[in-house]
Amino acid sequence: MNRLFAFIDRLAERNTRTLASRTSRRGMLARIGRVALGSALALPVLPFDRTSQAHAAGAHGAAGGKKKPGTTDCDYWRYCSVDGFLCSCCGGSATTCPPGTSPSKVTWVGTCHNPADGRDYLVSYNDCCGRTTCGRCFCNTNHGDRPGYRLGVHNDVNWCMSNDSSMYHCTVSVIVGVAEKE
Rank of each mutant, 00 (worst) to 15 (best):
C139M: 06
Y149S: 14
R131A: 15
G118K: 14
R119P: 00
L43Q: 09
N126H: 15
T16L: 15
C139W: 04
Y79K: 07
V153P: 00
Y76H: 09
I8G: 06
T51C: 09
V45Q: 14
S162G: 00
L86D: 04
H154L: 02
I8R: 09
L86I: 08
L4A: 11
T71A: 09
V106K: 10
A42P: 01
D145V: 00
T141K: 13
G152T: 10
G148C: 02
H143T: 13
F5L: 14
R25N: 07
G33L: 15
S21E: 14
W108K: 10
T16Y: 15
S173N: 09
G58D: 02
C89Q: 02
A179R: 15
R34Y: 12
P99C: 07
C112D: 05
T72I: 13
G110D: 01
V45A: 05
G65V: 02
V172H: 01
T23K: 14
G148K: 11
T96K: 12
A6L: 10
N2T: 03
L37D: 00
C137W: 01
M167K: 10
A20D: 14
L86Y: 06
R136V: 09
K67L: 13
V45F: 12
G177V: 06
A54I: 08
W159I: 00
T133N: 03
L11S: 12
N158M: 07
S81I: 01
V176W: 08
H55F: 13
R119Q: 11
E13V: 07
R136A: 15
G27M: 00
W108N: 12
H113L: 07
A6V: 03
D49G: 01
C134H: 06
D156H: 15
C139T: 05
R34G: 13
R136T: 14
K68W: 06
L41D: 00
M28H: 05
I32Y: 11
G118R: 15
G61E: 04
S124A: 13
A62D: 11
T133A: 08
R14A: 10
C134V: 04
K181D: 07
C89D: 04
C137P: 00
T101N: 00
D73L: 04
K68E: 12
T72E: 12
A40P: 01
A179Q: 12
D117I: 12
L151D: 07
G152H: 14
E13P: 00
S24W: 04
Y76K: 05
T111W: 01
D83K: 11
R146N: 06
G118V: 08
C87R: 04
H154S: 04
K68Y: 08
P147S: 11
D156I: 02
R136M: 05
Y79A: 10
S124Q: 15
A54L: 13
N2L: 11
L151G: 03
T101C: 01
D117Y: 04
K66Y: 08
Q53N: 09
Y149R: 10
A94R: 01
K66W: 13
A62S: 14
V153M: 09
D164S: 14
Y149E: 11
S24P: 01
P44I: 03
I175M: 12
R31C: 07
L29E: 02
H169Y: 02
T132W: 03
N158W: 13
S165G: 00
C170H: 03
G144Q: 04
T141W: 07
M167R: 12
G84M: 05
V123D: 03
L29M: 10
V153K: 13
M167H: 04
C129E: 10
W159M: 09
I8H: 11
L37N: 03
